[in-house]
């Protein structure tokens, strides 16, 4: 695999480069899977963590004071580790761990000075959850909700979406919003983040 410098990786993330995402996935994902799986998670969990870590870094790159003291690889692993520990320390998985495992994980989380450096909070995680489920809606629902939230009148939404009338556009919007709400509320992480944010 061709090596990419840390600077180029950060630049690539800033540009939302699919190549860099692929590169990181090939290079770092196996390590993340290993970590998550050895801490009661699955490969799907690891994929979520990988995605969230990239989003966190992307958001950080947009701020002027973005910097990391170690190598990018260490920085990325640090964020993934923290995200996962945070997830399981609040989640249902906690119930399945014995006291010793839980204590070990909490200790890891507690000692992790990355938390302050990166500054991830429950609100960001919650927003991530909303975005994830929004993207899982069908295209029509995404479009209707977007237009509605952009304050486009329903008559116009009906026209844009090829719906028969304003009333039907409203009904579709309501249905899409309910679908989204249900998806989010059904996500096991929702309750955890929601309570954490309170």
């Amino acid at each position: 695999m061709n090596q990419i410098s840390d600077e180029a990786i950060v630049e690539g993330i800033k540009l939302k480069s699919q190549y860099v995402v692929s590169y990181l996935y090939e290079d770092l994902f196996p390590g993340i899977v290993h970590f998550v799986q050895t801490n009661s998670g699955t490969e799907d969990d690891a994929q979520d963590i990988f995605q969230e870590a990239l989003i966190v870094i992307y958001q950080k790159t947009t701020s002027r004071d973005f910097e990391f003291t170690s190598s990018f690889k260490n920085y990325f692993f640090g964020i993934c580790r923290m995200l996962w520990l945070k997830k399981i320390s609040r989640g249902n998985i906690e119930d399945s761990l014995d006291n010793e495992e839980l204590a070990g994980i909490k200790e890891l989380l507690f000692e992790d000075d990355m938390m302050d450096e990166v500054g991830i909070n429950a609100h960001d995680l919650m927003m991530g959850l909303y975005q994830k489920h929004f993207l899982m809606l069908n295209e029509e629902c995404r479009k209707i909700l977007k237009l509605h939230f952009q304050k486009v009148p329903f008559t116009e939404i009906a026209e844009i979406m090829g719906l028969s009338n304003e009333k039907y556009a409203k009904a579709r919007k309501y249905m899409c919003k309910e679908k989204l709400k249900q998806r989010i509320k059904d996500d096991p992480q929702f309750k955890n983040y929601f309570e954490y944010e309170k």
Partner: peptide, 15 residues
């Protein structure tokens, strides 16, 4: 919350 979450087109795009 939904409005806040999906107003970030760049994040949605990256996701």
């Amino acid at each position: 919350s939904v409005r806040e979450a999906i107003e970030h087109d760049d994040l949605l795009d990256f996701r």
